[in-house]
């Protein structure tokens, strides 16, 4: 112990950042727009809440520029719950991220759901004490984000649709590419890194471990307990549910059901029980019917 009575320590190391994601595993992170919703989410078993101004379904409907939330709203949510509070910053908008760090949110989501602020650069996430989660549609994108300092990855899916198809595509793509890396010889990895446009040390790490070096969640389109079970069986280590809960008929009940199905994802009888009598799911949009300009997953690179 040092002379001031405090044990010497290293704060905000990458181990500590990635470690919080480890503790969120097997959990459900829920989008909330008010302290009341945050409380409902916590009481239903959310492992964390994502504080934002509008859920993706509303951002999609309203159009216009979607930005970081009002700090007052974020503070209100931090006071309402004891679970980790995450918040979104626009891609490349490091000043929004600095504001979120000043508010001491527990995780920042550099998110394609908001309108990108930089068309070339993502945020330098190494410069922050707060850990970041970023979206990815494939392995190269995931490794570029980790190279920039992201401590957690979520597959992007297509937010605000209630359509799981893109989440499945992205998870399968990640899985296939990871499997591919594990079949390559050491001498083939530099070319693979070039093809993936990813840092070679991270490519080597994935090839050796057969998994991402950080926790992988799934996001974008999860609306039912069976959706949660599906993506967990495809290798997600937890789920983000955006519009799927508070745009449904009975949010508290659906939230509890998705939590239950995420824990028991491999037990169809439990997923069936959790799926029973939930009322209407959110109003959905078929992703294939969206024009290119309304597809959020293509934001970021």
């Amino acid at each position: 112990m040092s002379s001031n009575g405090h044990t010497p320590r290293d704060e905000a190391t990458f181990t500590v950042k990635a470690g919080l994601a480890e503790m969120l595993k097997g959990g459900v992170i829920m989008d909330v727009v008010t302290p009341e919703e945050a409380k409902i989410a916590e009481d239903a078993g959310a492992a964390a809440v994502m504080a934002l101004e509008r859920v993706p379904a509303d951002i999609r409907r309203d159009g216009g520029v979607a930005r970081m939330s009002d700090p007052e709203m974020i503070r209100g949510i931090q006071e309402a719950v004891t679970i980790p509070v995450m918040a979104k910053a626009r891609i490349g908008h490091f000043a929004e991220a600095q504001v979120l760090e000043a508010l001491e949110v527990d995780y920042i989501d550099e998110s394609e759901v908001l309108t990108p602020a930089d068309e070339i650069n993502h945020i330098d996430k190494w410069a922050f004490k707060v850990p970041f989660v970023c979206g990815a549609t494939n392995l190269g994108e995931a490794l570029r984000r980790i190279g920039e300092g992201a401590a957690m990855i979520r597959s992007k899916g297509e937010a605000g649709t209630g359509d799981i198809v893109n989440a499945v595509t992205h998870l399968r793509k990640l899985r296939t590419e990871i499997r591919w890396l594990t079949t390559l010889g050491e001498e083939e990895l530099p070319a693979a890194a070039k093809q993936l446009q990813s840092p070679l040390p991270l490519v080597r790490q994935v090839a050796a471990a057969g998994k991402l070096p950080v926790v992988l969640f799934c996001a974008g389109g999860i609306a039912t307990p069976a959706d949660a079970s599906l993506v967990m069986q495809l290798g997600a280590e937890g789920v983000f549910v955006g519009s799927g809960i508070f745009k449904s008929e009975d949010p508290a009940r659906r939230a509890r059901a998705i939590v239950e199905a995420t824990t028991h994802y491999a037990d169809p009888a439990r997923v069936a029980a959790a799926s029973t009598g939930l009322g209407r799911a959110m109003e959905s949009i078929e992703t294939s019917k969206l024009d290119a300009e309304h597809q959020l997953a293509t934001r970021g690179w």
Partner: peptide, 16 residues
Amino acid sequence: QRNAFGRQVRSFEADF
């Protein structure tokens, strides 16, 4: 006492 050391920005590594 939950979250006794503070929010995530106060999470840390130490040796003892």
